[in-house]
C-alpha cells in the first residue's frame, strides 16, 4: 500500500507542477498584460513604464520562477482591482465555498448512496422508480432555476429560511440542497448500477452460502465493491464544487471563490484569476489523489497499478 501511495503522490506533484506552469502562462494568453493593465487610453510610454514596474520585460522563465517561489510561500501578488494581497482575498472567499462544497457533496452522497442501494435491492420497485424520477429531475433542472424555486417557496412563501447571504448556518441550507441535488443523480445511478452488478456476482452467492445475513451481504460484501467507481466520481464532483459553484453562489449571494473568479475574469484581474486557477486545480489534484488512495484501500487489485 505504501509504495502505491508514494507513487501516486509523486504523480500528483508532477501534475501540480505542470498545472502551475500552465496557469502562469494564462497571464500572457490574453495578450500583452502591460497594455491590458494600462487601459485603452494609455500612451506607449505609460505601457512601457508599467511593463518595467511589473517586471514583464524580463524573460518568461525568470518571471515564472519568481512567481512560483512566492506562490509556494503563499504570496500570489496583489490584486489589480482590490489592491490587496490575492492570498488573503482568496482565503476569505474560500471559506464560504469550502463550507458549501463540503455540505453539498455530503448531502449528495448521503442521499444518493442509500437511494442507489435501495433501488438496486429491488429493481423496478416503487423505490427504484422514485429514485429514477428524482435523478432525472435533478439532471434536467438547471441549478439557478431550482435555487430560485427554493427561495420562492422556503424563504418568501414559508419564511422558514433566509433567501441569501452567508451569516449563519441557516443561510447554507438552501444552497447545499441545490448544489447537492446537482451532484446526486450521477452518484445515485452509479451506485445502483454497481450494486446490481455486484449483487449478481459469484462471491455474493458464496457469502450467502456461508450463512451470512442480508445486511452483511449487502454492506460488507457488496457495497465495498460497488462503491469504487462512485469514489472516483465523487472526487471529481467535490473538486468541481470547491471550484466552480458560480451559479449557486450568485443565486444565493454567497460571495465565495467561484463568484470571485467570475468577478476577476470580468475585471481582467489577472493575478487573482491566476491564483484561483492554481488553487482550484490543486483541489482537483488533492481529491483525485485521495480517491486513488481510498480506491486502493477498497480494492487490493488496484494497489499494484
Amino acid at each position: 500500500m505504501l509504495p502505491f501511495i508514494l507513487k501516486r503522490l509523486g504523480l500528483a506533484l508532477l501534475v501540480a507542477f505542470t498545472v502551475s506552469f500552465i496557469s502562469f502562462l494564462l497571464l500572457f494568453l490574453s495578450g500583452d498584460p502591460a497594455a491590458a493593465l494600462a487601459g485603452e487610453t494609455a500612451s506607449g510610454e505609460d505601457i512601457e513604464a508599467i511593463r518595467r514596474v511589473y517586471g514583464f520585460d524580463r524573460p518568461m522563465l525568470v518571471q515564472y520562477g519568481e512567481w512560483l517561489v512566492s506562490a509556494l510561500q503563499g504570496d500570489f501578488g496583489e490584486s489589480y482591482y482590490f489592491k490587496l494581497p490575492v492570498a488573503g482575498l482568496i482565503a476569505e472567499r474560500l471559506q464560504v465555498t469550502m463550507i458549501l462544497g463540503v455540505c453539498g457533496i455530503s448531502f449528495a452522497l448521503l442521499t444518493a448512496v442509500p437511494l442507489g442501494v435501495a433501488a438496486a435491492i429491488r429493481p423496478n420497485s416503487i423505490v427504484d422508480r422514485v429514485a429514477l424520477f428524482m435523478s432525472v429531475a435533478g439532471q434536467a433542472m438547471p441549478s439557478f432555476w431550482f435555487g430560485l424555486i427554493l427561495i420562492v417557496v422556503f424563504a418568501i412563501q414559508l419564511g422558514m429560511l433566509p433567501p441569501s447571504g452567508a451569516e449563519t448556518w441557516r443561510h447554507f441550507i438552501l444552497p447545499t440542497v441545490v448544489l447537492g441535488y446537482y451532484a446526486m443523480p450521477a452518484i445515485m445511478r452509479l451506485t445502483r448500477a454497481g450494486m446490481l452488478d455486484t449483487l449478481n456476482s459469484d462471491y455474493i452467492r458464496t457469502a450467502r452460502a456461508k450463512g451470512a445475513g442480508e445486511g452483511r451481504v449487502l454492506f460488507k460484501h457488496a457495497l465495498r465493491n460497488a462503491i469504487i467507481p462512485v469514489v472516483s466520481l465523487a472526487a471529481v464532483q467535490m473538486g468541481f464544487m470547491l471550484g466552480g459553484s458560480i451559479v449557486v453562489e450568485s443565486v444565493f449571494a454567497l460571495h465565495g471563490a467561484g463568484y470571485l473568479a467570475w468577478e476577476s475574469i470580468a475585471r481582467n484581474d489577472l493575478p487573482t484569476v491566476q491564483a484561483l486557477i492554481l488553487v482550484f486545480s490543486m483541489f482537483y489534484i488533492v481529491f483525485t489523489f485521495l480517491a486513488d488512495v481510498l480506491n486502493a484501500w477498497l480494492d487490493p487489485r488496484m494497489r499494484s497499478a
Binding site: 456476482s201 459469484d202 462471491y203 452467492r205 458464496t206 457469502a207 450467502r208 452460502a209 456461508k210 450463512g211 451470512a212 445475513g213 460484501h221 465495498r224 465493491n225 477498497l298 480494492d299 487490493p300 487489485r301
Partner: peptide, 23 residues
C-alpha cells in the same frame, strides 16, 4: 436456513476465479 448454510451444509461452486470476494 442461515444457521444451516455454511455450518451443516456447505457449498462450492464452478467458478473459483470469481467465487471469492476480491476485496
Amino acid at each position: 436456513m442461515r444457521a444451516l448454510r455454511g455450518d451443516r451444509i456447505a457449498m462450492i461452486f464452478q467458478e473459483p476465479m470469481t467465487s471469492l470476494n476480491p476485496a
